[in-house]
Each structure stands twice: as C-alpha cells, then as structure tokens.
C-alpha cells in the first residue's frame, strides 16, 4: 500500500530499502524486493556497493528485470562466476560481507526472522522457501536489513520458525551463541523504517503520508520511539522513481 499517490508502496519500499545500503558495502542480496533495493542503491547513492548472489555470482550489474536469483538476466555484468562455497563460505562465513539484504515472512522483537513456514488461521502450517543462504547470511554478515511489505501478522513475539537469528535468541546474545556481526539493524516496509539496536526495536521513520500511531497499531512488537522522535522517511526522488519505472521494474513485478 502507499499513503501517497505519487508512488506505489513497492516503489517507496525499494527507495527506503536502498537508503540502507552504504557506498562501499559488500552485500549479499535475496530475491525480489531486496534485489530492487540493492540495484537502486547501486545506480544512485552507492555506486561502489558490490553485490553478491549465493548462486555464485560476483558483482552483477543487471540492466533488465529478472525473475530472481536463478534468472541469468540477474547475472549480467558480473565480474566473476563461482560457487556457493565461495559466496556463502569464503565471502559470508569468511567475514567479508558487510550487509545482507533479505526478505522475511515474519520478524520478532530482536530481528530474528522466518523464511520457512507460517501458521494459517486453522493451525496448519504453510511452507515457503526455507533458508537457502538466508541463515548463513544472517548468522555471519556484518549487519542485516530486512525488506518486506508491512502487515501486522508479520510481526510476532515468537516466530513460527526461526530461520535466521537476529540480535539475540531466547535471551542469548549473538556473541554468546557464537555468532559474529550485529544482526538485524533495520526492517524496511512499505510504511516505515524500524531500527533494531542492542535495546530492541524503534520506529525510526514513517513514510510520507503515514502517521506513527497508525504504523504502531499495525506493528505488534515492542517499538520504542527513538531519541528525537520518529522522523519522516525521505520521499522518493524523481530520479529514483524514473530508474525504478524505466529500468529496474518496468513491468511492476516487484514494485507495483
């Protein structure tokens, strides 16, 4: 959804997600909206960000939309092809990745997340993709940004399945569990940016047209108000929107 008719919720999400990518990041990117956010960052404020795909692709610069990580369109412009052991092993487990940009079905108050299965209203479980490299990335990368659409049911005190550890699990810190990196530092949705720190989650900013109280009502995990208050997320620029609409996702597969 979008609270502003000048752009769609997906476009706002891609823009807000892209702002989490810093120039110089070495980032492993999941399929779908994370791809959009990473490619947008690469073409705007973070031209020296380097992307990696767990399928064994180094530094792609795709110029047309793709159906996902396994779509050869996503590999265009790569500097090297290799193996999963090189990307998830040497780069991620080896401590050479600063950012994981990933999707999630469900997030808990400490930024742990679920990409495996959800519980339906009748108590049955509906399976999705599973971990793939998501657990490896969230266990070993410097920081994690989750990019997902905003629905109340996606925020839960207890996850249906904890695929990927966040800042702590069951009261145990990452260091205590044996994990490097800081874990989840932000969840970016089509309504807000939720920051995660050592003390938990805070409503960092709401997107233009959104009211913090409305977002809080639809985010059923403890959310602090950051020092200085909840800000407004910068609106998409004409350049960002043009890039999304003309090059990144002209058919609106991910951002319509």
């Amino acid at each position: 959804m979008s609270a502003d008719e000048r752009w769609t919720g997906g476009e706002m999400l891609a823009v807000a997600g892209s702002l989490q990518v810093q120039d110089g990041d070495v980032a492993v990117v999941g399929l779908g909206l994370p791809q959009m956010a990473a490619l947008l960052a690469q073409r705007t404020h973070a031209p020296s960000a380097r992307l990696l795909l767990e399928i064994g692709v180094f530094e792609p610069m795709p110029t047309e939309p793709s159906a996902g990580i396994a779509d050869p369109r996503m590999w265009r412009g790569a500097t090297a092809f290799g193996t999963t052991l090189e990307v998830l092993g040497v780069m991620v487990h080896g401590g050479r990745v600063s950012l994981g940009l990933l999707g999630a079905l469900q997030v808990d108050p400490w930024g742990s997340f679920n990409t495996t299965e959800v519980e339906e209203a009748d108590g049955s479980r509906r399976r999705f993709r599973g971990s793939g490299g998501g657990n490896d990335i969230s266990s070993n990368a410097g920081r994690i940004v989750i990019v997902m659409t905003h629905q109340a049911r996606k925020f839960a005190e207890t996850l249906t399945f904890l695929t990927s550890p966040g800042r702590q699990v069951g009261g145990r810190s990452r260091a205590d569990l044996g994990l490097p990196g800081e874990g989840t530092c932000a969840v970016v949705t089509d309504r807000a940016v939720i920051a995660f720190g050592p003390d938990g989650a805070a409503l960092e900013s709401v997107h233009p047209g959104e009211h913090p109280d409305a977002v809080l009502a639809d985010t059923p995990i403890p959310l602090a108000v950051p020092h200085g208050g909840t800000k407004e997320t910068p609106a998409p620029t004409a350049r960002q929107l043009a890039f999304i609409r003309n090059e990144l996702d002209p058919k609106g597969w991910y951002t319509s």
């Binding site: 159906a67 399976r127 993709r129 599973g130 971990s131 793939g132």
Partner: peptide, 21 residues
C-alpha cells in the same frame, strides 16, 4: 534433504510443500 526450494518469482515447490504438509 535441502536448504530451500522455489521456482523464483514463478512460485513455490507445490508438490514438495504438499508432501511435507
């Protein structure tokens, strides 16, 4: 034995997921 399954944007592994469920 797997780490994940999907058909990327085309969808999930429905036979696998049905058989697991």
């Amino acid at each position: 034995t797997y780490a994940s399954g999907s058909l990327d944007r085309f969808g999930l592994l429905h036979a696998v997921n049905r058989a697991l469920q």
